[in-house]
Amino acid sequence: MRQLPEPYSSRRDTITFVICLIFAVTARLTPVTYAEAIASTIRETVLSPFLSLQDEIQQLRVWRVRFEEISARADSVSAIAGNVQGLMQENARLRAILGLRARMPVHHIAAEVLFQTQQTEGTTIIVSAGEREGVRRWAPVVAVGGLVGSVQTVDRNTSVVHTWTHPNFGAAVTALGDSVVGLVGPRFGEGATMMLELRDVSYEGEIPEGTTIFTSGLGGVYPRGIPVGRIRGVLDDRVGWSRSFLVEPAIHPAAVSHVLILLAETEDLSGAFERRQ
């Protein structure tokens, strides 16, 4: 065992530890707006070179995928497709996002999802586009398949996106044309992991299982026509004159590697997403 300095754990150590704990608790109790400002400052200063480095690595990853795609074409893709399944999936995702970009009728920017660090951040993601690219707060964020969430904090080069899993998420939606309207939000409680709940639907509103629900454009944040999820059944908790439905989300935040951030306001995105029901 290594010789340790004596006394090893002094009063100074304890006091320093307690001071750090007090600072940490204070940070935890700091109002969200101040906490976001502090976090944003840290990201733009201390973490900026690291995030830039990470962005470069992500770019290298994309270039590698493209390079592999070209090489695979040259060498006959069929022979090696079985060995590059992961790359093929990444290619498919990139091609899909390119297809969505082509169909998107509004000014937007593509961004990469930067990595997650802690266990709690299923509710937020950080993307590689910020103030410099024209991103603004509350800008809708979509991916191939549907709605991801909206921009909450904008830094110079990055932005924090609140996904639909965030407790504050809510969107006005419609289904079956405009015959059914309601509000959708994350579902909480036992066994409710990663599901959405469609609330405030008229008691007479019937929605068959498998029906896709879309944003209705009401509320001013999300334009009309973005897929949110598919109905998976009626929930038991019928209250008053409304009923609720369980919704399987169209997008799982953990599976998203690239997103589109809508930069200009628009009313209708119908037609931009495939397989509209």
């Binding site: 935890r28 976090a39 990201r43 930067l114």
Partner: peptide, 18 residues
């Protein structure tokens, strides 16, 4: 620093790492 990358629970990482 970790909290700055996941601001949904700002301070939780500082507490845990401390």
């Amino acid at each position: 620093l970790a909290d700055a990358l996941s601001p949904v629970a700002f301070g939780a990482g500082a507490l845990a790492h401390t």
